[in-house]
Nucleic acid binder design. Structure first.
Lengths: 140, 140
DNA sequence: GTAACTGCAAAATATTTGCATCCTT
DNA sequence: AAGGATGCAAATATTTTGCAGTTAC
C-alpha cells in the first residue's frame, strides 16, 4: 500500500498545510513512540513558537490525527492514531507501553485493550491501558 | 474487622502524625473516588499551605499509602491504596473508572486489570487501566 | 533535644489568551 | 480577498526549592 504522508493526512482532515503542521506531523510519522510537548520543541529546534505547538497538538487531537496517552505524572504524551480514528469518535484502543529504562512510550498497535466486566450500573465508553516495564530494545 | 483510621495508617508507615497529614488522609478515607491536588486544597479550605499538600501527597505515594491514577490530561489524580501496597513494590492493579457526567474517578477495587499478551521481548512490570463512561450513580 | 514537618517567599515551569500580522486557499 | 494560522506579549496556573521557624517524638 502507498505510504501515508503528512500532506495526505492534513488534506484528508481539511486542515491548511503549513510549515509547522507538516514538520510536527512528520516528527510523529518518524517516531515509533509517543511525544511530549517538550520533545517536539526540542526536536524542531524551537523553530515554532511554543504556543503554535500547543495549538497544533490540540488541533490534531480534535481531528483524531493523534491521541493522548494516559500517564501518572503530570505530563501529556501524544501518539499517532494508526487505526482510522475519526474526530469525535475515537478509537485508541491499543495498549501503551512505557519503558522504565529508555523512558520511551510505545504504542502496541496490535495489542487491543481487553474488555473488563464492570460492576452493575457502570456503562463504559472507552478504555485505556498502560503497561510499564522493559521494552524489547532495552532487553537486548 | 476494625476500621482502619488515618492514625493507624500514619503510624504503621512510620510517619509523624501532624494535622495536615491526618486531615488529608481523612479526606481520602471519606472519598470514594480519587482526588486531585486542587480538590484537596478546596476541601480543606486551604488550611494548609499549597506546598505542604504537594509534599504530603508525595510522601504518601512514596510510602504506598496512595497511588497515582493515569489521566490523559495534564492532571494528577490520587487514590487510596486499599489492597496492602508496600513502599517501592506497588500493586494498584485495579481498574479506574472516570465518569463523564459527574467527573468523578472511582477505583473499582474488585475489578483487576487483565493480563495482556505483549509482543516478543517486552517485559511487563505493572499495568494500569482506565475506563471512561457513565458511573452507576449518574445512570440512575 | 533533635529530627522532621510546615509555611512563606520566590524561582522555575507550564499553559492559556488576546491581538496584530502573515500565509493558505 | 477572506479565513485561518502564527508569533509575540502577557496573564494564569502549576510545581519546585531554600530557608527559617515550629512541632512531634
Amino acid at each position: 500500500m502507498p505510504t501515508t504522508t503528512n500532506l495526505d493526512i492534513l488534506k484528508r482532515n481539511g486542515l491548511s498545510v503549513t510549515e509547522g503542521r507538516k514538520k510536527i506531523l512528520e516528527l510523529f510519522l518518524d517516531t515509533e513512540g509517543a511525544l511530549a510537548h517538550a520533545d517536539i520543541e526540542k526536536q524542531t529546534d524551537a523553530a515554532f513558537d511554543r504556543v503554535t505547538v500547543y495549538r497544533t497538538l490540540q488541533t490534531f487531537v480534535d481531528k483524531g490525527i493523534i491521541h493522548q496517552i494516559p500517564t501518572t505524572d503530570n505530563s501529556v504524551l501524544y501518539a499517532l492514531c494508526k487505526h482510522n480514528c475519526e474526530a469525535g469518535h475515537h478509537h485508541d484502543n491499543h495498549v501503551h507501553f512505557i519503558c522504565n529504562k529508555c523512558g520511551k512510550t510505545i504504542c502496541l498497535d496490535d495489542v487491543t485493550v481487553p474488555e473488563v466486566k464492570l460492576p452493575k450500573g457502570f456503562q463504559p465508553a472507552q478504555s485505556a491501558m498502560v503497561v510499564t516495564g522493559v521494552c524489547s530494545e532495552c532487553r537486548k
